[in-house]
């Protein structure tokens, strides 16, 4: 577990704290490279592979944010379930000539990049310039605490997730069903 107190002096590269920092830099790199592959690659299958790489990196970021439970859920749900679903959809729905995807017009690439850069840059500047207030923690956010809260204070969330997923599964089956002719 990572301590929540800030480290005063910069750690040496090969000390324990320094290696933690190196692993964090690797996770940042994995996330960004995966995201770039996911939104830039020409083939859909490669985009899904990039998405998986990106989600593994994001799971690492969650681990650094003191929540190994959410990191595990990220790997289980996104890398395990969502990526497999998207791969199946590509195999079922994309004909050969459409598995390659380009941009939709000559101008859309630069304009899309401009919009995305504006949004990302704006959010970053906003985040860096704001003074975020820090309030003292009232618990440690461990898995045990999550379990207790999920079954007491936030039991509605728990039930809603189940109902939403049930309805989504039934809806997906109904929409994708091929009508039989007989």
């Amino acid at each position: 577990m990572i301590s929540s107190t800030p480290i005063a002096a910069p750690p040496a590269l090969l000390s324990a704290d320094g290696l933690v920092g190196v692993i964090f830099l690797v996770m940042i790199g994995v996330t960004i490279i995966g995201g770039l592959i996911a939104c830039n690659s020409e083939r859909l299958v490669r985009a899904v592979a990039g998405l998986i790489v990106c989600f593994v990196g994001v799971a690492g970021l969650y681990y650094f944010l003191n929540s190994p439970f959410v990191a595990m859920m990220q790997v289980l749900i996104y890398v395990g379930a969502v990526a497999v679903t998207i791969s199946f959809a590509i195999m079922l729905a994309a004909p050969e000539e459409q598995k390659k995807i380009g941009v939709s017009g000559p101008l859309i690439g630069p304009f899309g990049f401009g919009t995305a850069a504006l949004i990302a840059g704006g959010f970053s500047v906003l985040a860096v310039r704001t003074e975020w207030p820090v309030i003292a923690k009232i618990n440690d956010g461990s898995i045990k605490k999550i379990g207790i809260q999920l079954l007491t204070n936030y039991s509605m969330v728990f039930e809603l997730i189940s109902i939403v997923l049930l309805i989504a599964i039934i809806g997906a089956l109904v929409i994708a069903r091929v009508e039989r002719k007989n």
Binding site: G35, A38, C39, C54, G112, A116, A120, F123
Partner: peptide, 9 residues
């Protein structure tokens, strides 16, 4: 913000 920007792009 970077992930969000990539998604928008």
């Amino acid at each position: 913000a970077l992930l969000f920007g990539m998604g928008v792009y």
